[in-house]
C-alpha cells in the first residue's frame, strides 16, 4: 500500500523540533539563562548562528529550549486529556442513555464553555503565573475533547454484533470497553491526539505571549515573541524565527495527523486494496 507523503513529510518536520528539544536537555550552544548585554542584538555570526536577542542570549539556544517547553506542555496536556477524557467517554458510551452518561456529557459541555485561555486566566488569577498553569489549562480543555471523540466513536462500535457476542460470552462493560471498543477506536484517538498536540503548541505560545504561561527565565517561543514585539520593525529576525518554529512544528503535527488518518482509516485502506 501507498505510504502517504503527508505522513512522511509531517513526521520529518516534527522530528527536527523534537530532536532539538531533546538535545536541549543535555546541550545547547550557550546556556539559555546567561545574559550577555554586551552581545545584545548581534546579527547572525559564526559564534551565534542566528544572532542574539535584546538581552544578548543566543537565539539558537533559546529556540531549542523553547521547543522543549512547547512540546512538553502540549504533550502533557494531551496526556491529561487522554488519561481523563477517554475513560470518561468510554464509560458514557457503555452506559449510554443513563444518568451517568448524562452527567458526563453535561460536565463535558460545562468544561467546553471555558476556553483554555479562560481556564488559564482563572488559574493564574488565583495561583499566579507558571508553566504548570498552561499544562493544566490546556489539559483541562482537552478532557472533554477526548471524552466526546471516545464516546462518539464507541457508540458506533457498541451496536455491532461482535459486542453482542462478547456479552453473550459473559463479558462486562469494562472488559468489553478495554478489549473490543478501545482497539477499534484507537485510530481516531491517535489522530485526535496529534490534532490536540498541535493545538496545544499554539495555545501554549498564546498563553506565554500574554504572560500566563512559562515565566522567565524559562525560554518559550511565545515569550520570545512578546519580548520581540517592540523590536520587530528594527530586528524582524527576533520575531520571525520563533514564529516560524511554531508554524513548522504545528504544520508538521497537522500533516502527521492527516497522514495518519488516511493511513489508518479502514475505509480508505479497503479502497486502496
Amino acid at each position: 500500500m501507498r505510504w502517504p507523503i503527508q505522513l512522511l513529510l509531517g513526521s520529518a518536520l516534527f522530528a527536527v523540533f523534537l530532536i532539538a528539544a531533546l538535545l536541549s536537555l543535555i546541550w545547547t550552544p550557550y546556556p539559555v539563562t546567561e545574559l550577555a548585554i554586551a552581545d545584545k542584538l548581534s546579527p547572525p555570526s559564526a559564534d551565534h548562528w542566528l544572532g542574539t536577542d535584546h538581552l544578548g542570549r543566543d537565539m539558537v539556544s533559546m529556540l531549542m529550549a523553547g521547543a522543549r517547553t512547547s512540546i512538553a506542555v502540549a504533550l502533557l496536556a494531551v496526556g491529561i486529556g487522554i488519561a481523563l477524557g477517554v475513560p470518561l467517554g468510554l464509560a458514557a458510551a457503555a452506559r449510554r442513555g443513563t444518568l451517568l452518561d448524562e452527567v458526563i456529557m453535561r460536565g463535558n459541555d460545562l468544561v467546553f464553555a471555558f476556553p483554555s485561555l479562560v481556564i488559564a486566566i482563572l488559574i493564574t488569577a488565583v495561583f499566579g503565573p507558571s508553566a504548570v498553569n498552561a499544562i493544566l489549562a490546556i489539559g483541562i480543555f482537552n478532557v472533554p475533547v477526548f471524552a466526546r471523540v471516545a464516546r462518539g466513536a464507541a457508540l458506533t462500535v457498541w451496536p455491532r454484533e461482535f459486542i453482542l457476542a462478547a456479552r453473550v460470552a459473559g463479558k462486562g462493560a469494562a472488559l468489553i470497553s478495554a478489549e473490543h471498543i478501545l482497539p477499534n477506536i484507537a485510530n481516531l484517538l491517535v489522530v485526535q491526539g496529534t490534532i490536540q498536540f498541535s493545538m496545544g503548541i499554539l495555545a501554549e505560545a498564546g498563553l506565554s505571549y500574554v504572560g500566563l504561561g512559562a515565566q522567565p527565565p524559562t525560554p518559550s517561543w511565545g515569550r520570545m515573541l512578546a519580548d520581540a514585539q517592540t523590536f520587530f520593525y528594527a530586528y524582524p529576525r527576533l520575531a520571525l524565527l520563533p514564529g516560524l518554529c511554531i508554524v513548522m512544528t504545528v504544520l508538521g503535527l497537522n500533516l502527521m495527523g492527516d497522514g495518519l488518518r488516511d493511513f489508518l482509516d479502514p475505509r480508505l485502506r479497503r479502497a486502496v486494496r
Binding site: 454484533e161 461482535f162 457476542a165 460470552a169 459473559g170 463479558k171 478489549e179 477499534n184
Partner: peptide, 27 residues
C-alpha cells in the same frame, strides 16, 4: 450461544480467529 446475521459485523476485526473462537471460554 448465538449466531448473528451479519457475517461482517460479528467479529472484532482486530482479533485473529484463535482469539475470536476462544471468547466463550471467558465463561
Amino acid at each position: 450461544q448465538v449466531v448473528f446475521q451479519d457475517p461482517y459485523g460479528s467479529f472484532n476485526p482486530r482479533h485473529r480467529v484463535r482469539r475470536l473462537l476462544a471468547e466463550p471460554f471467558h465463561l
